[in-house]
Amino acid sequence: MSNNHVYIALQNNEEARAIIEAIERDNPNASVNHFPAMVKIDGDGRIEVRRKTVEELIGRDWDPQEIHLHLVSISGNVDEDEDVFAVQRNN
């Protein structure tokens, strides 16, 4: 049985909504699940947040490290640079 499940959970707030929308745009296979005050995005193998997409949505510069303000939890290995914040399985 191969289980490559990853997720990112974010607070349900104004700025995080743009991040969630960016994830939906860039990760068509990810599924967005709503909980009280929190949104959990599940994916298979990898989920990424792209700086460019978030910037387009919020109309200003955005540093992927700003995601720290809204993160609730993750599952997977983190891969982060100036342009992308991703969680992924390495196998």
Partner: peptide
């Protein structure tokens, strides 16, 4: 509680990553 919880939890992703 939601507020302190999520504020703490926003650090947690970093802690979890340290663990892994």
């Amino acid at each position: 509680t939601v507020t302190f919880g999520f504020s703490a939890q926003s650090d947690e992703a970093r802690h979890m990553t340290l663990g892994l």
